Simulated scan of single mutants.
Amino acid sequence: MAAHNALGKAGEDAAVAYLERNGYTIRDRNWRKNHLELDIVAAKDEELIIVEVKTRSNTDYAEPQEAVNWQKIRRIVVAADAYIKHFCIDAPVRFDIITAIGDAGAFKIEHIKEAFYPPMF
């Protein structure tokens, strides 16, 4: 596995551990349908939470959440819609970003709740 892939997996593992410590139930990780993917799908307080995880070793060039541009948001929202239809979910949906900065085992986690809202298509 390439180093950046290993770092991304470790960051996602850290994000899942953070969510579980904070009372979230993990429904799915890396859920895929065709070309669509959701990093983490969680639930808490009868709300479905779609979590995009961004992992970086440092912030020398940019903050990790800056990688979630409007094109990425659109893909996440389309994937979330497919997930909701696939599982026939009737619950409020929230879109969060979790950033993991550092090295495996020593990440600084930031949870950005309601990081974005679905755009109007």
Rank of each mutant, 00 (worst) to 15 (best):
E63F: 04
E63T: 04
P64T: 03
P64D: 08
P64Y: 11
P64N: 07
Q65M: 03
Q65D: 11
Q65L: 02
E66D: 12
E66F: 02
E66C: 01
A67F: 05
A67H: 09
A67G: 04
A67Q: 10
A67S: 12
V68K: 07
V68T: 11
V68N: 10
N69E: 09
N69F: 11
W70Q: 13
W70A: 08
W70T: 13
W70R: 12
W70S: 12
Q71L: 10
Q71C: 03
K72F: 01
K72I: 04
K72G: 00
K72P: 01
K72C: 02
I73K: 14
I73G: 03
I73F: 05
I73L: 02
R74L: 07
R74D: 14
R75I: 01
R75W: 09
I76Q: 14
I76S: 13
I76V: 12
V77G: 02
V77L: 07
V78C: 07
V78I: 10
V78L: 07
V78W: 03
V78M: 12
V78T: 13
A79V: 04
A79Q: 14
A80C: 06
A80S: 15
A80H: 11
A80G: 14
A80Y: 04
A80P: 10
D81I: 00
D81T: 00
D81P: 00
D81S: 00
D81H: 00
D81E: 08
A82T: 01
A82N: 10
A82P: 03
A82C: 01
A82D: 12
Y83N: 02
Y83P: 06
Y83G: 02
I84L: 01
I84C: 02
I84E: 07
K85E: 08
K85D: 08
K85M: 01
K85L: 02
H86K: 13
H86D: 14
H86I: 00
H86C: 03
F87Q: 02
C88V: 05
C88N: 14
C88T: 13
C88M: 07
C88Q: 15
I89V: 09
D90W: 06
D90L: 03
A91Q: 11
P92E: 11
P92M: 05
P92I: 02
V93T: 15
V93F: 09
V93K: 15
V93S: 15
R94G: 05
R94P: 06
R94K: 15
R94M: 03
F95E: 07
D96L: 03
D96P: 06
D96R: 07
I97H: 12
I97G: 07
I97T: 07
I97S: 08
I98G: 13
I98P: 15
T99P: 09
T99G: 11
T99C: 09
T99A: 08
A100S: 15
A100E: 14
A100V: 09
A100D: 15
A100R: 13
I101K: 13
I101H: 10
I101V: 15
I101S: 10
G102P: 10
G102M: 05
G102S: 06
G102W: 06
G102C: 03
G102K: 10
